[in-house]
Design a binder for these strands. Structure first.
Lengths: 249, 249
DNA sequence: CGTCACCTTGATAGTTCTCAAGGGTCGTGG
DNA sequence: CCACGACCCTTGAGAACTATCAAGGTGACG
């Protein structure tokens, strides 16, 4: 079964991201510039692989819809999920380096991405100072997210990590119009949570139950629900700073 | 006592980084361009703070000499060290965002940095396509390093984390001509190691002793020594991929 | 000599992992 | 329609790892 299909291109002027209030407004000039550089689109279904660790890629992507994960595998099979990718996110700055990718990318939900060629990307970005700023913005924010995750793994216990991740995902989803009222509908497996937070599956399960009993976080296979985000924010001592609207290419 | 002093500027043509084989060669044109944009220099002594979490910064830096750490504090005093900064590293891409810094930066050894103004930085980089590539290179590599750290915190036990960190630091130092023969002379406190690896001080101490007894890693207050890097690399299942020479600004 | 910053050790408690087993749902093929 | 496999969640119990508390020990330095 094919989990990765090339698709017809939708014009940037009809970009689904335009309607999301969490994303930065884009003027028409820039849309045309982006559209001219855009190479195509790709559609993935749940579980489909976009990038494979260890291979090179000649493409850079922007997420049009769906949620994906970026992860790293170790030889012995363990895996560490590095981060989640939401609509508007830039995938594969790594690819610019022309070295084997140090991580893989896989779709968590059906997803659709916009393809840019690696060659000429720098010049493309350089043509427009706003775009250079946006790329740096995205890179800096990505780094900042990894910092948060590092703090979570380094300083928090199991329950706090899970609550942190739930809050992170819900807020991130709200910022990209995938969530409202503290609820996102994505199916994240307990195994995936464990792989992200450095916990065993069993312990993840028990900690989640405990959070559920207390009504802090309700995490099912279909959705994540946080009745009182403020309470969770205090509990994990994490302020999901959404800052301004996110730019995208 | 002042731990942060402005200093006279050394010309880029006499840049100490030019002599290090681990760093990319730079042509004179570009050196002149950089020198024209450079705003000054700053010298820090051990323990000096370059950036303070929660404040804004109008400057971006390149490390000329010394080693620094980037860390994040929590309200309750815990801290997570995010990464180490070596000569040639770019500090403060975050600062481009004009938001409060999410981390602080502190010198681990006496250090010297080159100052660039935030305003006009994008245009400065855009003037030269090679420079745009280099900034992306550095950002991508920084991200890649954080990924490695995440893997360490998420998937490895105490001994492995410490061995990993030692190897990471030695290789990184070798790449910037601060180390040779698997030995770097930097003083990293056991408390700092604990803060980086998410371990308690006591457990860090015991694990280090265990590694020392087995001759894998000898980590004292003055230096880190790895008699057989290959063995450690296998032990922690981490390949310190130095890739090509690092660019810098 | 006293202080400070760092490393070391012992004992105990708490967290998290591993192993082992069972149960639920869903789609597929006989 | 039912059996089966695939995938996911759940529970119990013991072992392993790591944190915490409490005390000492060392060397540098004023």
């Amino acid at each position: 079964m094919d989990k990765k299909t090339a698709e017809a291109m939708t014009p940037c002027t009809g970009c689904p991201l335009l309607n999301c209030s969490g994303l930065k407004q884009m003027d028409v000039d820039r849309m045309l510039e982006v559209e001219a550089f855009k190479q195509g689109e790709i559609a993935l279904e749940r579980g489909g692989q976009l990038l494979t660790q260890g291979t090179r890629s000649n493409e850079i992507y922007t997420v049009l819809s769906g949620v994906l994960i970026r992860f790293r595998l170790m030889e012995d099979g363990r895996r560490q999920i590095i981060n989640f990718l939401f609509p508007g996110d830039l995938v594969g700055l790594q690819a610019m380096l022309d070295e084997p990718m140090t991580h893989g990318v896989e779709a968590l939900t059906p997803a659709r991405l916009c393809i840019f060629p690696r060659d000429g990307f720098i010049e493309f970005v350089g043509r427009n100072p706003g775009m250079g700023y946006d790329v740096i913005w995205l890179a800096a924010k990505e780094e900042s997210a990894l910092e948060e995750h590092l703090v979570a793994l380094g300083q928090r216990n199991a329950r706090e990590r899970i609550a942190y991740l739930a809050l992170f995902l819900v807020k991130r989803a709200e910022g990209t119009c995938l969530a409202s009222d503290g609820r996102v509908e994505i199916s994240v497996t307990q195994g995936q949570v464990a792989d992200m937070l450095g916990l065993s599956l069993v312990h993840t399960n028990r900690s989640m139950q405990s959070l559920r009993r207390e009504g802090l976080v309700r995490w099912s296979l279909n959705a994540i629900e946080i009745p009182d985000p403020e309470a969770v924010s205090q509990y994990v001592r994490y302020d999901p700073n959404l800052s301004g609207p996110r730019p995208y290419l």
